[in-house]
């Protein structure tokens, strides 16, 4: 596909102040998102992965201006004009919200328990000053698109199952026909037998409505399945960015490799878990000096704990934040290949 950017995130940072005491004095900052730069192209799905506390959800919230970014620009190339979301006015944000919507992780908490399904789905339309009658008609139009019957319109969320709720959540995001959708862990709260339905639905809708996704997840096998490109985050930093193939098969950052090696394979005949990353994710309040991963990295050198590496282009749109990205051989040795092709049982 032609790489036309629809969203450009430049040097995005968000530091949450840590406050203590009676007068809430600021004693430090959690660098939730630290100088993150990436681009999302039209029609693609960009996967954003990392462990808890890596800042992926904060990135999503900054993109929607649900938290105020501290630094950086978020350029959204709309149909007619380009917005900088980071500095958009309230009026511009209303336009932005017609171009970009979000699907939340937990379908149980992201729907107001006191609203009927039709009101939930219509909320973005009403915010855009669409009349109630028109909004109601459009809700009835979109319900079959997400696989729900018209009788769901009058139900309350507590009458719905998790999968049905997530469909409502998807309908709410798509009701204003936004070209860009941020999906924040949309399947991780769902039952196993329902997950594949929702993934299929997201894939279908992307084809039908020509959507672009930013897909945030911690489940690497799902991210691999749905994404064209993948960004890996660790402690607020982007550590690797590339196509799915580059990240999964030719990864250059030790953290990415460790993450891949931790993925459990649903096959009892492949049990060798040759490499398990030691230690814990350090506190984002006080991240290690130099390379944030240096405390857990099996290849860490002296340089790593002193000097913070830059995100460098390795060619072919493959970006890596590691001093030794060129030299490290991550294909074997301590890391056993985990995502090799296997004959899966049927």
């Amino acid at each position: 596909m032609p790489d036309t950017p629809i969203l450009q995130v430049e040097n995005l940072s968000k530091f949450f102040p840590v406050q203590r005491g009676l007068l809430r004095r600021t004693v430090g900052h959690v660098k939730a998102v630290n100088d993150v730069t990436f681009t999302v192209n039209k029609g693609e799905c960009l996967g954003l992965v990392g462990e808890s506390g890596c800042g992926k959800t904060t990135v999503a919230r900054c993109l929607l201006r649900l938290v105020e970014p501290d630094q950086g620009r978020i350029l959204l190339h709309g149909e007619q004009q380009t917005f900088d979301i980071a500095s958009a006015s309230r009026k511009e944000m209303l336009d932005v919200r017609r171009q970009m919507q979000i699907i939340f992780q937990d379908p149980f908490s992201s729907l107001d328990p006191r609203w009927r399904v039709t009101d939930v789905i219509a909320e973005p339309l009403l915010a855009q000053k669409v009349g109630r009658g028109e909004a109601g008609r459009r809700v009835l139009d979109i319900l079959p698109t997400v696989g729900l019957g018209p009788h769901f319109a009058d139900r309350f969320p507590h009458e719905l199952s998790g999968g049905e709720r997530q469909r409502v959540s998807i309908a709410r995001a798509l009701i204003v026909s936004p070209p860009l959708v941020v999906a924040d862990e949309p399947v991780s709260a769902l039952d196993v037998s329902v997950r594949s339905q929702i993934i299929n639905l997201l894939l279908d809708l992307q084809g039908q409505m020509n959507l672009t996704y930013v897909f945030i997840a911690h489940d690497l096998s799902i991210v691999k399945h749905i994404s064209h490109r993948i960004a890996v985050m660790y402690l607020g930093r982007l550590v690797e960015l590339g196509t799915t193939q580059q990240v999964f098969d030719e990864c250059k950052h030790p953290y990415t490799k460790a993450l891949l090696a931790s993925v459990l394979i649903p096959d009892p005949t492949h049990r060798e878990q040759s490499y398990v990353l030691e230690g814990e994710v350090p506190s984002p309040l006080n991240p290690p000096s130099g390379c944030h991963f240096s405390t857990r990295c099996p290849f860490a050198q002296e340089q790593c704990s002193v000097e913070e590496p830059e995100l460098r282009d390795m060619g072919g749109g493959h970006w890596v934040r590691c001093h030794f990205a060129e030299e490290l051989d991550l294909s074997e040795g301590v890391f056993a290949p985990q995502f090799e092709t296997q004959s899966a049982s049927a």
Binding site: S161, S193, V194, N200, K224, H225, Q342
Partner: peptide, 27 residues
């Protein structure tokens, strides 16, 4: 059978439709 077919495996072709179980777990 359906559960095992519906999970994503390393060799699942990317971006293809997954097998899925219709409906959801009843109350």
């Amino acid at each position: 059978q359906a559960l095992l077919r519906s999970i994503v495996r390393p060799d699942t072709p990317p971006r293809e439709q997954l097998h899925s179980i219709s409906g959801s777990v009843p109350d």
